[in-house]
Design a protein around this nucleic acid. Structure first.
Length: 113
DNA sequence: GTTCTGACTGGGT
DNA sequence: AACCCAGCCAGAA
């Protein structure tokens, strides 16, 4: 579209909202889905800007290592992100998701390209 | 205006 | 295997 301004953030938020409960994805997966394979940082940056919007399950977005890298940005304590994930059935240990491959949700695979 | 950093990732050393 | 570096883009100093 011609009026591409900050649509990137909108797209990121849209994909994050599509993450099913009990599933997680990575910044790179979202970036890849948006065609910005190497712009995973921007996804994280978009999440930072989304801080405060409870409609965006940012806790379901982790890095490719399955580590809750963004936990430190959650309000209510650093363990809030872990609590949110565990409440959805995602096991977390030492800020790392257990069975990451089982709960991983890839928008490119699930939604299609 | 330049410079640096960042909720990342992949490849190279 | 561990560490380092480059790439991507946007916002702050």
């Amino acid at each position: 579209m011609s009026d591409s301004k900050s649509n990137f953030f909108e797209d990121v938020y849209d994909v994050v909202r599509l993450i099913p409960k009990g599933r997680v994805t990575s910044y790179g997966a979202i970036a890849n889905y948006l065609g910005l394979r190497r712009s995973a940082r921007m996804v994280g940056w978009a999440m930072n800007q989304s801080h405060g919007d409870e409609s965006i399950p940012a806790h379901r977005v982790v890095n490719r290592n399955g580590v809750l890298t963004g936990k430190h940005f959650f309000a209510g304590g650093e363990h809030r992100m872990q609590e949110l994930l565990e409440a959805e059935g995602v096991r977390v240990k030492e800020d790392q998701i257990l069975g990451f491959d089982e709960v991983f949700w890839d928008p490119v695979v699930e939604l299609g390209i």
